[in-house]
């Protein structure tokens, strides 16, 4: 059922005992673009929040102390979960798309199937950096345009593709992050895209 306010159990729902493989998809986008909302719409658990403390070596060596200077940053991200069948469970991670968080992505999200870049047409520039990094890392992605009510512009997907300088190969889709059925279509679009890419690769000797 497509419902924006689906009832989620407050208690922890454990996975099936046969669960054997976890999969990852990341959802990236600027502040307030609807990442958490999207995750909540399809997750079988209330989105959970967790954090990573990142320690980075500082610039150069502190000569007097003889130790490397280190900086510590805490980055929070949320996630939800979808049991695909008895064995497979898909985790959706909502991650901030800002430049300063990229070291987190690189480390935490290696091995993801792919990414959804969530775009708010009123603030398209917020997604440039995320798109650039995904292309650089060769992580497959789709662009989902979260149509907010306040969006008077109604740019077409083609116009948005141009504004974001996206190649023809990147699938684009309209969505409403609050609607389960809509988010489901976004995820299917991504996995369909992955399937096409993997098929092409398997055919190449």
């Amino acid at each position: 059922m497509d419902s924006a306010t689906s009832e989620l159990p407050l208690q922890r729902t454990p996975l099936a005992d046969a669960a054997e493989t976890g999969l990852k998809i990341i959802v990236v986008g600027g502040f307030g673009v609807g990442k958490t909302t999207l995750v909540r719409s399809v997750s079988e658990i209330r989105p959970l929040n967790t954090e990573e403390v990142m320690t980075q070596a500082g610039e150069g060596i502190d000569e007097t102390a003889g130790v490397e200077r280190k900086t510590t940053t805490t980055v929070a991200f949320d996630f939800g979960r979808i049991s695909l069948n008895e064995q497979m469970v898909l985790y959706l991670f909502g991650a901030p798309g800002q430049e300063r968080f990229w070291f987190l992505w690189d480390r935490l999200f290696s091995g993801t199937l792919g990414a959804v870049v969530l775009v708010d047409t009123r603030r398209m520039a917020d997604s440039w950096y995320a798109i650039d990094r995904l292309e650089h890392h060769k992580t497959p992605f789709v662009v989902a345009v979260n149509r907010f009510d306040g969006d008077e512009s109604r740019f077409t997907l083609d116009e948005i593709r141009q504004a974001l300088a996206l190649g023809e190969h990147v699938p684009m889709i309209d969505c409403d992050a609050r609607v389960r059925g809509s988010v489901k279509e976004v995820l299917i679009a991504l996995v369909d895209h992955l399937y096409t890419l993997a098929m092409a690769q398997e055919r190449t000797p």
């Binding site: 695909l84 497979m88 898909l90 199937l113 060769k138 389960r180 995820l187 399937y195 098929m199």
Partner: peptide, 20 residues
């Protein structure tokens, strides 16, 4: 190894998502 998951795995993911 190749960077992309196998199509058989992706097909299972698609089936799971379609049945949501």
């Amino acid at each position: 190894v190749a960077g992309l998951p196998e199509t058989t795995l992706l097909q299972e993911v698609l089936d799971g998502l379609r049945h949501l």
